[in-house]
């Protein structure tokens, strides 16, 4: 049962691990990039497991779904360090690649990535938000930059002008500590429209409809209020 969510053949991992990081604002396609990478590893005959946070359980807890509807089985965990025990030590040994989605929710991200890549020789592919709606560091995602082999900052499209968007702006005036939501609460914006954020928020609140997602909702992420 434990190894049923590992995808691919039993293929011994390389002696030295790797860490690859995808960051960016909401709706930038981080999950899609993660799954593209994971799928290519599966196609190369590698044994793969996908992990995501169990904190956000609005959608399928046992799979990650990309914007074009591709589903990938995954483990929903509160902490990454629980993975080895839950997955099974033998099955873990056979793993080559570990994908981590919604990485900003894992407080033990740095320790897990260090152990998996440095000690266990795994390829770890990580996707998560780099900043919150205040453009401050979110979770431990930025902490793993010094140990990462590659870092890719993806961009979304500014909801106000269509240019490349690097930041996430909250549309509402909510001040609670953690506000889970998607396009109804957050929008990707360029620097210009982030700086003029209050104008944007007011415009969005006056909008007849709130922004909404259609199709699969798995790209909906969360951004905290710190």
């Amino acid at each position: 049962m434990a190894s049923s969510l590992g995808v691919g053949s039993s293929h011994s991992h390389s002696s030295s691990g790797e860490i690859h990081l995808f960051v960016g604002p909401m709706f930038a396609g981080k999950t899609t990039s993660l799954l593209r990478r994971i799928k290519s590893e599966v196609d190369n005959g590698r044994n793969v497991a996908m992990l995501k946070s169990s904190k956000d359980n609005r959608y399928a807890v046992d799979s990650v779904v990309t914007h074009d509807g591709i589903k990938f089985p995954c483990w929903a965990l509160p902490d990454l360090m629980l993975f080895k025990d839950k997955y099974g030590h033998e099955a873990y040994q056979k793993l080559d690649v570990i994908g981590i989605d919604e990485a900003q929710f894992f407080e033990d991200l740095y320790d897990f990535c260090c152990k998996a890549a440095d000690e266990d020789g795994k390829i770890v592919v990580v996707a998560g938000l780099d900043g919150d709606y205040m453009r401050r560091s979110f979770g431990s995602v930025l902490h793993i930059i010094p140990i990462a082999d590659t870092v890719t900052k993806l961009t979304a499209r500014c909801e106000l002008c269509g240019k490349r968007a690097f930041f996430t702006l909250r549309k509402t005036g909510e001040k609670q500590t953690e506000l889970i939501g998607g396009a109804d609460l957050y929008m990707p914006v360029c620097r210009h429209h982030y700086v003029n954020g209050q104008v944007v928020v007011e415009a969005a609140m006056k909008s007849v409809f709130g922004s909404q997602k259609v199709g699969c909702g798995s790209l909906i992420e969360t951004a905290p209020v710190v």
């Binding site: 593209r36 914007h67 909801e159 269509g162 909008s207 997602k213 259609v214 199709g215 699969c216 790209l219």
Partner: peptide
């Protein structure tokens, strides 16, 4: 190649899809 319009911007009245 068969990508979803999975993000609708109601403030700028656009639906977006992309592919690599």
């Amino acid at each position: 190649n068969k990508s979803m319009f999975d993000y609708i911007e109601r403030s700028s009245y656009r639906a977006l899809a992309y592919d690599y």
